[in-house]
Design a binder for these strands. Structure first.
Lengths: 225, 225
DNA sequence: CTCATGCAAACTGTATGCAATTATTTCCGT
DNA sequence: ACGGAAATAATTGCATACAGTTTGCATGAG
């Protein structure tokens, strides 16, 4: 096969990265189910590249934890046990708690202002019941929390854990009333951060994630049968 | 070049993994300094393989965080700023605290017994001033703590963070009196875990790592000039 | 009919070649 | 002599080729 190039070759190194994104999306959105095989040749054909970049992408996905690999076998979408899923949510809760606590102690005035503004802006989305719009704001809100801790590595751990949990959080806001409750919980976290109350902020953030966990594990279970 | 095989080809997929280990060791032991370039051809010659597995190994090392890569440039040994190093130690302290707290709450009777035995066994090494032997026991001790949390993902995060800190902890026990102090701190953690006092165990573990951090950052600074 | 054995197809792991990009050196103008 | 531009060398990114391993199926024995 002669691999016709879609656009001119740009050698910006983005080829593999885009594939990683695309495949990760397929997994996260559920288009590829846990246990499904990711054979290199099919992916190569699908993305119109050779196997080499496909292998590299699979390597990165493996590092991220979205796929599993063993020697001389096809890569497979990671199958997550209920127990392991629970441990990821537990880790997420601990990390969010840490980030909220540190954010309360360390955020600059600007960061606090931006967090509050961002949070208040999402209020109207709650009233409109706009799940998708709120999801974007929600992601942004949590990212601010991670960065506000002013601790690069902790931010990394939080973002990494969130990425691995992504496949199990889809549709979490479909659960009735979850939108408003999420907003109210954010409200408590923001309030605590604004008054530099690290302890309360941390506990509120921990509880916030734990609740999401409950909602999502139910979803995951019903989705896996 | 014709790439003579040292041993018969074993196709067990261990080739890349071994390279990752070897290169990681070079970095961790300081044989390769931060900022140093890792060019693919040299590594390929050195390990007597082609560039393909070298690239894969570099990809994994990048995922681990030991090397940095940008498009069309050589991989380089990660340069860690003082600030980033501090954030890694901070994360380590938080994670150790969490693990110790959860261990106090969740360890089985057997795990508690093993932890205590392991700890007491290291006492004689302290008296002999055996740094190397104690280091092994120390690693084992902390691994037990991570596993005792009974939360796979938190264990992963802790082990991963410890691996990234490894290059900066070498010789940490050379600092006078550190051995005995470390043992005493472990003692406090073990005692708290044995009486299922999660709060105290967590605080003790947090403090323990923070102290290591102080010792190591000094070392790192003096070592980087 | 069931199970073991061998063969064939499919697929992964590694080597190598070529195109694109970056680094380096050389050469010319000022 | 110095600064900058062009050519050249070095090196990465991707494609393809080939070797080795696994898997599924067919065939035959029990």
């Amino acid at each position: 096969m002669k691999l016709a190039r879609k656009r001119e070759i740009v050698r910006s190194g983005t080829t593999v990265e885009q594939m990683v994104r695309s495949i990760a999306d397929l997994i996260i959105t559920g288009a590829m189910r846990p246990g499904e095989r990711l054979d290199e040749i099919s992916l190569a054909n699908r993305f119109e590249v050779s196997r080499t970049p496909v292998r590299e992408a699979l390597g990165q996905l493996c590092a991220i934890g979205l796929v599993g690999r063993e020697p001389n076998k096809s890569a497979v979408v990671t199958t997550v046990t209920q127990q392991h899923l629970a441990s990821m949510f537990e880790a997420m809760a601990e990390l969010e708690g840490i980030c909220a606590r540190l954010s309360a102690e360390r955020m600059t005035v600007d960061e606090r202002r931006m967090l509050e503004a961002e949070h208040k802006a999402s209020a109207k989305l709650v009233h409109r019941g706009a799940e998708d719009g709120y999801e974007a704001h929600n992601t942004d809100f949590h990212t601010r929390l991670y960065r506000g801790a002013h601790s690069d590595h902790i931010t990394d751990l939080a973002m990494q854990t969130r990425a691995r949990l992504a496949p199990f959080r889809r549709a979490q806001f479909r659960i009735s009333g979850r939108l408003a409750r999420s907003y109210n919980e954010h409200d408590g976290i923001v309030a605590a951060i604004l008054r530099a109350d690290g302890l309360t902020a941390g506990q509120a953030a921990y509880a916030h994630v734990s609740i999401v966990s409950d909602a999502s594990t139910v979803f995951a279970r019903s989705g896996n049968d």
